[in-house]
């Protein structure tokens, strides 16, 4: 580990935590499914920055890069499948509002 780089860890960490909070807040507060997905994406950005930062400070940038590439692959697949699910929900309820998903139960009752 490069001890000369250690003082930059905490300032970067503060920004990482702030972006994490922004992502969590977005997921918790919004009713829009697409915006919730944007919140998840922000969480992943914070995780990416933290991984790269730790790799830089410990001198293991190669390992950190391989982990980040794996993370990016997972991120893309999660986003694609989630977007597909949102479109499926939209075709079913005609809305991307989370509150409209509560009506699914009533819909099933009327169909039955």
């Amino acid at each position: 580990m490069n001890s000369a780089l250690l003082p930059m860890f905490w300032p970067f960490c503060i920004f990482v935590l702030m972006i994490l909070v922004i992502g969590f807040y977005c997921i918790l507060v919004t009713y829009n499914l697409i915006r919730a997905l944007i919140g998840v994406e922000l969480l992943m950005k914070a995780a990416t920055l933290l991984l790269i930062l730790v790799g830089y400070i410990t001198g293991q940038t190669a390992l950190a890069q391989s982990l980040v590439i794996t993370l990016i692959v997972v991120e893309v697949v999660v986003m694609v499948v989630a977007a597909g699910i949102i479109l499926r929900i939209y075709s079913h309820t005609d809305s991307v509002d989370v509150r409209d998903l509560l009506k699914l139960k009533d819909k099933d009752k009327t169909n039955a």
């Binding site: 790269i52 950190a64 980040v68 990016i72 977007a83 479109l87």
Partner: peptide, 30 residues
């Protein structure tokens, strides 16, 4: 931070592909 390969992946995939995915999802909803 000394990780050019990860930066290229981030730029091409996360700054290029994922916003396009979001825009197409938004355009498919009214």
């Amino acid at each position: 931070l000394g990780s050019p390969l990860a930066a290229v992946c981030e730029l091409s995939v996360c700054a290029g592909l994922i916003p396009v995915l979001f825009v197409s999802t938004i355009s498919l909803t009214h």
